[in-house]
Design a protein around this nucleic acid. Structure first.
Lengths: 335, 335
DNA sequence: TTGTAAGCGTTATCAG
DNA sequence: CTGATAACGCTTACAA
């Protein structure tokens, strides 16, 4: 079956290709009966407009690139759902790029984004540098960064939809202080260093205001292939703090297992909060306290912002930073 | 900054655009010094070839579509990693499509795939029908289906990279029989109905060969928002079978919680196997038995197969069905 | 080894 | 309301 083009349709309907173009683009200057004729020819031949040719002619691909780290894939599922749904509503296609240590560095991804002439980019706030954003900006590609707050001054046309992790940690620590708890430790998550940094800043700030110094930021090196293996080990030799903050569910679960094995009781000996929510937290016994982050909305809002930036919506000119709120979801691991 | 085209580079380097084209395509007929001159012009202007224009000229987009159900997103993370890595190696871009009940039906996705003129498609064996594959086939788009085995006769140019779940279940049940266990139940997973169907077929076959009938296929309706809520309820009123098969980790964990709350002990009162592996299975106590499926490979092999189909590799003409092997990974929930 | 020009499938401008 | 025709940016015979 030969590829059907607009010429074939034009011939079949006995009109010019310009008229066919008008029909498929819902132009209202076409007389009803010729529109019908064209429509029939389209059906009969099974014609589908070539988006590539349209892209060339319009200098617009109606395609948006999403780039995220390969490792974070499973964790960002809901954000991605929000992104995809809204993209669908606005009729954008999605080019999907992953970055990983070995195979695809950010630089290659950027290269292919530029070549693809996508209309805009969604970046997860992980592993890209300011330089890399600068390159995208030089090629005038609108972008929005989703996840956590961008640091540094904002360059040109970039939006930011984020959770304020700094404030989350700050407020949480102050609540602990109010309950008389100041022996708090926080476990690093190597997959989310930019968010860890912001959390730590919040903790530091709260401690500093009390005239104290926060010094229980638990890190581990790569000899442990996961935080799980590390933590189940670590807490065999380290008495847990009165309050432990982990980032991901697997870290929280590891901690619980370690405590159980070493005879510590949760929440009596030590309390536990896991920053990132997941369904597994409620499946544990005791159920694990966490924060509720509207992940789907994070994605949906980010994509909506980008689409507005693409049509140069005036209302968006000022307000390209959108903070998404979070709420406490405290369960049995905290008192 | 004006969009730089091949003409700008040609003018800058004082050659024709054909020569520039030869340089960016690594043609070996260009004299070294003119290549250098062109290369410098490219650097100086920051020129990046327009993939859209290339796509038009070549009738080839070097883009592959991946379509998967929105719900299954988090579960397929590793398969996707395999797909993405291999796509990257062969320099294909990825268009990503999700299907979901409300917003994006399979039909729309197919529409946009055809319009995009992608070179090939990867389909997850979920929620598409034979009709839909037929449409893709009419437009001569090579595709490979990944996950489970396609049923029905194969149409045209479609590959299939799969796990043989039927055999997995068949062999497992026979091993149970050998150990004297024939009181087995299996819990449906609504997210993976095509795989459930194959598992059930395997169980049925094993039972039939013994002259028995398998009648403990546990299903639940949509009033339960997740299998977790259902199972923790269900096993309060139902004595668990001697052996329970679940599909996903959350189902297995739900079952364990329900048993614990009702005073049943695992694996003494009832044993448990979870078909799909996940890291959470080893975090449970007791650790949960499962099957090891090389998910990354599943994706990598599927993408490699597709790339071969795209260059009409002869070796692939015959062999477009690839079965990926699995292995037992039995832990504390089985004896 | 390089340049010219036709073609890839659309959209958009202008006449009619 | 419709039809020519020139872009859009690139590849690739074919000529030189």
């Amino acid at each position: 079956m030969k590829r059907i083009t607009i010429y074939d349709v034009a011939k079949e309907a006995d009109v010019s290709l310009a008229t066919v173009s008008r029909v498929i683009n819902d132009s209202n200057v076409v007389r009803e009966d010729t529109r019908m004729r064209v429509q029939q020819a389209i059906e009969k031949l099974g014609y589908k407009p070539n988006a590539i040719a349209q892209g060339l002619a319009l200098s617009k691909t109606t395609t948006i690139s999403i780039v995220m780290s390969e490792k974070l894939f499973a964790y960002n599922a809901k954000i991605l759902n929000g992104l995809m749904d809204v993209a669908k509503i606005y009729n954008y296609n999605i080019m999907f790029h992953t970055t990983s240590k070995g195979i695809s560095k950010m630089q290659d991804v950027i290269e292919s984004i530029i070549k693809s002439r996508v209309d805009g980019v969604i970046l997860f706030n992980d592993n890209f540098s300011e330089d890399e954003m600068e390159v995208l900006h030089e090629y005038q590609i609108p972008m929005v960064v989703v996840g956590s707050k961008l640091k540094g001054q904002k360059i040109g046309n970039v939006g930011n939809v984020y959770i304020n992790f700094e404030r989350m940690a700050y407020e949480f620590v102050n609540e602990c202080f109010e309950k008389g708890i100041d022996d708090i430790s926080m476990v690093e998550d190597k997959l989310n260093l930019s968010m860890m940094e912001q959390l730590k800043a919040g903790v530091d700030r709260a401690y500093a205001e009390k005239g104290l110094v926060f010094d229980k930021y638990v890190t581990y090196d790569d000899s442990y292939k996961s935080s799980y293996t590390f933590l189940s080990d670590y807490y065999k030799n380290h008495k847990p703090s009165r309050m432990v903050i982990t980032f991901r569910d697997s870290q929280a679960i590891a901690l619980m297992n370690a405590c159980k094995e070493c005879g510590y009781s949760i929440p009596d000996d030590t309390e536990l909060v896991c920053i990132l929510n997941s369904k597994y937290l409620t499946m544990m016994r005791p159920t694990i306290s966490t924060y509720n982050i509207p992940e789907y909305d994070l994605g949906a809002v980010a994509m909506r912002l980008l689409t507005k930036m693409l049509v140069e919506d005036e209302t968006v000119k000022q307000n390209k930073d959108i903070e998404i709120s979070f709420s406490k979801l405290f369960r049995e691991t905290t008192k």
